[in-house]
């Protein structure tokens, strides 16, 4: 696999991981939750990362990437 494909794949994996852990999953609501500060700030970072992934996609298309995490 070419180096830039590996780098791109790593970025996409981190982006997908952060998107899930910050934005999906079971949500606690109401008085029972004590929130952790600055999570919105991390999410802004994720959005920026999406922009960079898209830029890479603009440069290269027509190639399937299967990014399976090693278990």
């Amino acid at each position: 696999m070419h180096d830039n494909v590996i780098d791109r794949s790593k970025d996409i994996t981190i982006l997908e991981l952060l998107d899930r852990v910050l934005n999906k999953g079971v949500i606690l609501t109401g008085d029972i939750v004590i929130s952790v500060a600055d999570i919105d700030l991390i999410y802004v970072g994720v959005k920026l990362m999406l922009s960079s992934v898209e830029t890479m996609e603009r440069l290269k298309s027509g190639q399937a990437i299967v990014d399976m995490k090693i278990r």
Binding site: E16, L17, G25, G30, S61, G62, D67, K69
Partner: peptide
Amino acid sequence: LQNQHASLSFILTGPWPPYNFVDFIVK
């Protein structure tokens, strides 16, 4: 699918825990 759509890029990631398929809010 990628072979059928050469002008597109398909990016598959996983396997993930089922983050997108838990449909409830804990009270």
